[in-house]
């Protein structure tokens, strides 16, 4: 992905943060919301920079593949 996507992701995260944060009444929700936005933003930037970054797909295949029998295709 290009720099254009990084800017877009950052703008979207900042926009959601500014808009929603003020409306959250309690402190635990504010903390969870801030952490979640930051984590998702950081992961999105990492995926934008390294598009072949191992993720859920690789994790599932690595964990389960040794236990699954090879079934012949028709």
């Amino acid at each position: 992905m290009s720099i254009r996507w990084i800017v877009l992701i950052t703008l979207a995260a900042a926009f959601i943060f500014v808009l929603e944060w003020r409306r959250i009444p309690d402190r635990p929700t504010k903390a969870a919301f801030t952490f979640l936005i930051l984590a998702v933003w950081a992961m999105s930037i990492a995926v934008s920079i390294h598009s072949d970054l191992p993720g859920p797909d690789t994790l599932i295949k690595t964990v389960l593949e040794p236990f699954i029998p090879n079934v012949p295709h028709q």
Partner: peptide, 10 residues
Amino acid sequence: MLLLLMSVWD
């Protein structure tokens, strides 16, 4: 945002 990330990640 997380769902969108999951849709493109890996």
